[in-house]
Design a protein around this nucleic acid. Structure first.
Lengths: 249, 249
DNA sequence: TCGAATTTGTGCGTATGTATC
DNA sequence: GGATACATACGCACAAATTCG
């Protein structure tokens, strides 16, 4: 039996204390010096133990102060469900998620004309360079940024219509907006992967500390098999739980 | 502008080489000594740089040999779609995913009677201690373990019926099996989160190196609002992309 | 206001064990 | 067996941020 290394054993013990609640969110971990005396190890080992927890996103260090337990998974993101059309209402899915958690939702957005790069072109089924409307969002919950999104719509579909600029009209959401110009969305797909946050994303989400992980959700709406909108949604992993509720015929 | 630390700069450069393909999957990274001379840093810094990439699951170290680039995201998991009933067929969703990728799917399973613990009881809407059928699966793709699953069904529903033992009958999949005893599944929910693998999971999935991350999918099938099966599905993150395709009414 | 103590972040050098080649 | 390479671990140093008397 390979006995576990000291730094992993210490990490495991601290992790257990966090998950049991003995170290609540926001609590300060024992300093490196405390860990040295408590476990009888060198500073190096204490550091490695904490670096393990940092890599897992459980804690974050603040130079000169200490290492603190990160807030746990408390945000939920519900995927749009089948009834987005009949049940659209005046609020966005994001606002509903926030309301459900008793938090206040706001967002910033910025739209501009752009050209599809290779990746977006593939997802929209068009040639690279095709004109698209590109809209970036930053969603905030209680004034804290918690979600980023960049959406692309081919101007060949929306150009010149009343919904060309996504946030200008009355209709909320891709399905309702497309309905307004007679494009009937009948399906969407979400592909979920996970990767380290880019610097710009870490900045926009105010992720402290070092390379935190994010979920990247690639979402595409289809009307009769043709892509009409695609978006890249970025959420801090470890704070989010993703929920899909799907009917069975 | 805060200049980035050397170990992060080195990690970024190696990461870029990996993502650009200059360092392909399976390739060996420069040894610590090479990194020391190439970047003019100490062994400590080289180590920290590599540890960053390990934490991201991009590379894995093999003592005495070297540090190697992990295989990228090449597996897809498609969630059951709403036509699981009409489109069930003789194969499992897992087998279909594997076939789509040109790989051969096999699995091991083991069923036994058990009692619902607190977590499972909540998800099944029963009292803790309620008798359940517990089935553990290990799915292999080309003889490599890639997915774990533990499923729970209340014996109050399946006990004494032809489908009490999940893998004994002809019907494949929860929906088809429940149909066989007149229980009509009409909805399911999947909740996705991400966490470090437990030791047992890392072992069963043959994850090399240190605490790799996994997706944990909590899936529950419902019939008329009542839970009839719940499962915990564990997949190595970084190898998997999760796909949901959802109709819009 | 100032300064001292504490704490993390970054970095260096070294040593031992053990697996691989 | 010997060289190489990673894994673990010790000790030390300095900078920068924070905290607190």
């Amino acid at each position: 039996m390979a006995k576990t290394p000291a730094y992993l054993a210490i990490a495991a013990e601290l992790r257990a204390e966090i998950q049991s609640g003995a170290l609540a969110a926001g609590a300060k971990l024992p300093s490196e010096s405390k860990l040295m005396t408590r476990f009888g190890v060198s500073r190096t080992v204490a550091k490695w133990a904490i670096s393990v927890l940092k890599g897992e996103g459980l804690v974050v260090g603040r130079p000169g102060s200490g290492v603190y337990v990160q807030a746990g998974r408390r945000l939920e993101r519900r995927a749009p469900s089948r009834d987005v059309r009949s049940n659209a209402g005046p609020t966005s899915p994001f606002a509903r998620d926030a309301a459900r958690a008793g938090q206040q939702a706001t967002w910033e957005h910025e739209s501009r004309h752009d050209q599809a790069d290779e990746l977006i072109a593939v997802r929209l089924g068009v040639e690279p360079g095709t004109p698209v409307m590109r809209t970036t969002y930053r969603f905030l919950s209680d004034d804290e940024p918690v979600q980023l999104s960049t959406s692309y719509e081919p101007l060949s579909i929306t150009g010149g219509t009343s919904i060309e600029w996504p946030e200008d009209g009355a209709a909320v959401g891709v399905v309702a907006r497309m309905d307004a110009i007679g494009v009937r969305v009948d399906e969407f797909e979400e592909r979920i992967s996970s990767r380290p946050a880019l610097d710009a994303e870490a900045d926009a989400l105010r992720l402290p500390g070092r390379p935190a992980d994010v979920y990247e959700i690639a979402r595409t709406y289809y009307a009769a098999g043709m892509p009409v909108e695609t978006a890249i949604i970025v959420l801090p992993r470890g704070r989010y739980e993703l929920i899909y509720r799907i009917p069975v015929d």
